[in-house]
Amino acid sequence: MQSANRPTDRTVQLMATCLCDAFFDDVARATVEVLEHVGCEVEFPENQTCCGQPAFNCGDWSASREVMRHTARVFDGSKPVIVPSGSCAAMLFHGAPLEFEKEKDLPTIQKLANRTWELADFLVNGLGIEKWSGRFPARIAFHRACHTRGTGSAEAALKLLESIEGLEVVPFGEAEQCCGFGGTFSVSFPHVSSSMGCLKLEHLTEMNPDFIVSGDMSCLMHLSGLAERGEKPVKTLHFAQILQTALHRHG
């Protein structure tokens, strides 16, 4: 689905995502440190906002295109664009070309799509990193975020996680099932969305993992929000945070 010749230069542009901008600065920081550890120079275009996915998913494609045009201007150039979220990355490389399919500036949008990498995908399939150094003694359940279906992201993240000393990835049932977030779906279908999330939590916690890990803060925000309301809080981590922490615990 994604272009085979995405750039792999080590000077990269970071799209931090609006969720990290608003809530999860620690995840964005972890992303920067992880990228720098593998020798990347990370640029952060200041004018970035959001990928436009909320409007896209609501069906308001003209509003979404307005945001996407802005994003395409902000991330002009030829460097790889790295996104620490499978969902926002998919918006850039798949959703955007879809909403621009009848627009004149489709080529501009396609160019951006062809430079976009989800973080784990970039590390493993872009830079060829196979192992991650450091230690992280814990048992984790890894939730494969839905928008990484059909991409190499989940396998890439798992490959790195499993290579970390002391870290054990535990299996769980119905792994293909969604966490129920779905953006505005979570507020327009609150019952269905929460029920999906509770089921997901049941599965994820089957083996009592220390952390629930994913490459998408949106899923994790939904899951931890549900668990906290249900008074059975869970600990969640973005996989970049594990990579980052593992490095600090190195030797």
Binding site: C50, A63, V74
Partner: peptide, 18 residues
Amino acid sequence: PSPGTPPMGAFAKLASSP
């Protein structure tokens, strides 16, 4: 009609004005 779907016009304005 699409109950529960937030209007996106204001969001788009906000997200296009850095």
